[in-house]
Computed example of a mutant assay.
Amino acid sequence: MKKRLIIGGVLAAALAGLPGMTLAGDIANIQPIGFSADGKVFGFQEFGIKEEGRIPYSNTYFVNTGSGQYLEGTPFRTELTDKDANLSKARRQNLTAARGEMDKYDLLTNPGLIAAFNPPTELGSPSKTIRYTTLATDGPPKSPYTLSLGEMPVPTPKECASIDKRVLGFSLQMIEKEGAPNRQAARQATAVPAERVCSVEYRIGGAMVYQPETGNQVHIALILAFDAERNGRWIAVPVHP
């Protein structure tokens, strides 16, 4: 069953809260899984322990890099409430459930490159921009890219009516491409998964790059979405330079 999405608003392991802020929620960790050989599918897992109830959870997502939407029948979600529940058990069960899709698209064969990583725990790091190159080489940066994240108010969905903070969406621009200034609107209006529509803040948390044997590079912006309780969850946003 395809997940419902809305237009308007719309990632790299974050282990703690934003510096200088009091958080009541938890921020999920993220583990990229990989790409299909043609770059048309990207998979990742997020996981953590919910602050309320100390419930271990794990979710595995499969994203169509053309549309930015989840593949039909995904994501796979696991929450464990039994007395012997732990994070390891939740992750294993979740990956077992998702293994068919992982194998179908051969994601483990094509891990891609973690080109940049910008967790909230990195003191002083910018939250709305990220700069990276597409080759893992030493020395001066070669043909860098920069993504810039902007927030914007959106109409409050009815399921968010009880929230006492402004609901936000975001725009994403590639302001540098191969070392040159760029005005490309990577994702000015992006479809947001239904479970993220009540987000009140976003952070650009990382970037993935994959080069298929044939065809153009695929870039993935990893966006961390915060709800009003300061729970942080991830969205993978495909970018095509």
Rank of each mutant, 00 (worst) to 15 (best):
N118K: 04
L147A: 04
S67G: 06
E72I: 10
V200I: 15
S148V: 04
P140S: 12
K83T: 11
G139D: 06
I114P: 02
V197A: 10
T60V: 15
E195D: 15
T146K: 04
A115W: 12
C198L: 08
G179M: 04
G139F: 03
G66W: 05
K165W: 02
T96S: 06
L87R: 06
K158Q: 11
F117T: 06
V192T: 15
L149P: 02
N94G: 05
T190Y: 14
V200N: 02
M174C: 14
P56G: 07
M102L: 11
P56R: 10
G73Q: 08
S171K: 08
A185R: 13
K104Q: 13
Q93K: 09
L149S: 06
R196A: 05
K83Y: 06
F62C: 13
G150A: 15
L113H: 03
K177A: 11
L123P: 01
P144C: 06
Y70V: 01
K83L: 12
G100S: 13
L108N: 13
T156L: 07
D84S: 14
I130S: 06
G139C: 14
R131D: 03
A186E: 09
A185S: 15
N182Y: 10
G66I: 08
Y105L: 08
D84N: 12
A116L: 10
T134L: 14
P111F: 02
S127Q: 09
